[in-house]
């Protein structure tokens, strides 16, 4: 049971990407590097029991079970655009609540400047973890104000149902104004830290994937332009390319977080 979100910008008016596409075309390297691998292989992921550890610069470190997390705040439906760094995009109806609800519980100290997210990395359940494509576990990070922004979502479901494993079950981050890889999947640990975390993709290719990775049509990826995107689920071979929007269309809500920053430098 979820209610429609009242957070400004949380209900995109775009046409939804079909469920079939959302659940069969995934980047989730823990299950392989092909887009079709997660849908084929993620059934081995065991999502219960599941615990989330929250620690670091907090007054009240805690380990929460999945049932505690499901009850922690009211579930909301949010329709977000998802823009992948590879140049394609989807529109997905997520179910979850703002990450800030969890962070407030643990009472961050004054030293907590960044938030680090760790995904599960269990080779027994995740065949992709045996290959050295990335440093495991998958680590992502946000600045504290980004993490506390109401649009930053902890998602537990999509299309009104429990998150399919290939989409990052049982809980994942969704940061709609950043490229998709910033939204860590199957999260087991959240650390509040003083220094800027080094995320897995930044460690792998620092020139290509920066810490911020805000959607930005004016800052190209070294190997392709980010000026436009292919909206999936519309028209087969001829799915239309459309201009990419600054901050993926969430500039009104998040633009002030980056006031005065050189976004070419902090890509």
């Amino acid at each position: 049971p979820s209610v429609r979100s009242t957070v400004p910008g949380a209900l995109a008016a775009d046409k939804l990407t079909p469920y079939e596409d959302v659940t069969t075309y995934n980047n989730f390297y823990e299950f392989g590097t092909d887009k079709s691998d997660p849908a084929e292989l993620a059934h081995t992921l065991k999502t219960r029991p599941w615990t989330l550890r929250i620690e670091g610069e907090v007054d009240k470190p805690v380990t929460l079970g999945l049932d505690d997390l499901l009850k922690l705040a009211p579930m909301e439906e949010r329709i977000y655009r998802l823009r992948c760094v590879e140049g394609w995009s989807m529109v997905i109806p997520w179910v979850g609540y703002s990450l800030s609800a969890i962070l407030k519980k643990v009472q961050p100290t004054s030293k907590a400047k960044f938030v680090e997210f760790h995904s599960l990395a269990d080779a027994k359940q995740m065949p992709g973890v045996r290959s050295p494509v990335l440093l495991w576990p998958y680590v992502e990070g946000l600045r504290m104000d980004e993490a506390m922004h109401p649009l930053t979502l902890m998602a537990f479901g999509l299309y009104g149902e429990v998150l399919p494993n290939q989409n990052g079950a049982p809980l994942r981050l969704v940061v709609p104004w950043k490229y998709g890889f910033k939204s860590a999947k199957s999260i087991v640990k959240i650390r509040l830290v003083e220094r800027e975390p080094v995320s897995s993709w930044t460690a792998a290719a620092p020139r290509e994937y920066g810490f911020y990775s805000n959607v930005n049509p004016k800052v190209d990826h070294p190997r392709w332009s980010q000026a436009s995107e292919r909206r999936l689920g519309e028209g087969g071979f001829f799915a239309p390319r459309k201009p990419t929007q600054m901050f993926n269309g969430y500039e009104a809500q998040v633009g002030q977080l980056y006031a005065g920053m050189d976004l070419k430098k902090h890509y």
Binding site: D21, T24, K35, W88, R230, G233, G236, A239
Partner: peptide, 10 residues
């Protein structure tokens, strides 16, 4: 036939 998945162009 629509059997190339979500991103047939790619």
């Amino acid at each position: 036939a629509g059997r190339l998945g979500a991103n047939p162009a790619e």
